[in-house]
Design a protein around this nucleic acid. Sequence first.
DNA 1: ATGTTATTGCAACTGAGTTGCAACAACAGA
DNA 2: TCTGTTGTTGCAACTCAGTTGCAATAACAT
Lengths: 164, 164
Amino acid sequence: MPLVKQIRRRGGLERLAKQHGLRLTRQRRLIFAILESAKTHLNAKQILEQAQRLEPGIDQVTIYRNLGVLKRLGVVDELDLLHLRGDQHYYEARQVRAHSHVACLACGKVFEFYTSAIKTIDRELEKECGFSVSFTRIEIGGQCAACRKSGREAPLPRKGKQAR
Amino acid sequence: MPLVKQIRRRGGLERLAKQHGLRLTRQRRLIFAILESAKTHLNAKQILEQAQRLEPGIDQVTIYRNLGVLKRLGVVDELDLLHLRGDQHYYEARQVRAHSHVACLACGKVFEFYTSAIKTIDRELEKECGFSVSFTRIEIGGQCAACRKSGREAPLPRKGKQAR
DNA sequence: ATGTTATTGCAACTGAGTTGCAACAACAGA
DNA sequence: TCTGTTGTTGCAACTCAGTTGCAATAACAT
């Protein structure tokens, strides 16, 4: 599974903040820093827990409000990762290169996959429909190589509540 | 905007039900029929309202439980449509051909877009990663031709709660 | 240093989705 | 067609992610 090193827009937060009349509070910087350095996709609760280690008084509303702001600015993306683990939403700092999220339905692992086909779709939409693409989200479900080898199947008719 | 006629797997529900020991209740048939004939993407509440017209006593738990079953069977997909209208989830009967959901951030319209590039991605994942794809979900945000013409922009730094 | 105002934290709230359980009904076998 | 098994339904109570109103606080421009 080829994992390309992540490339991110740097130092854009200050510029964007000034542009939109936003203030760079300690809390806002912290939340953005957590997302930028995250190695996995985090949900709101996990972001809160990480933030509270450095900023014990921080409240969950501050997390939600800032996730909202960062989403609107386009520096953070909200994902559902195919609802594999319930109805959670996950967040990641937006990277320069668009990528797909590939989830194994058998073992639950989520990979990132980079392909030029994403650009192809964007170009087609532009040419065929006159649609100007701002961002693309691709989520793919299936069975990873390891699970195919070991014969591990997706527990298809899954029952009951998924882990929250 | 080229809208390809929808092609769906027909008559598969009976087979699947037998296969998995499920019963084809009136309610289950109704919910599936609503999704199959839907011209737009529906959320749970809208499905409930439609169902109650034909089956006044039907409860929302029945909707949720059946959406769960139909999802697990792979005949219904759950989408968030980029959270354009809040954190709602939308449902659609799975079609034979995979397609992308293209949403205009300015006017909120959602289109379906068919492209062979989806197959390209699936093939690449198979060849490069040994990953076997079951389904692909593509959601694209941007500006549609009409909004570009009329100069309508996405209300980017959007504030407050979105319509629920 | 000072005023303006975006932002924070608290507490109370909203609403989508879930759970337990008794009554019901689909369906297979007689 | 009748009958037993058991998957499914509807109800009521619940859970919990995310939101709202508001007073106190703190960025940041001047």
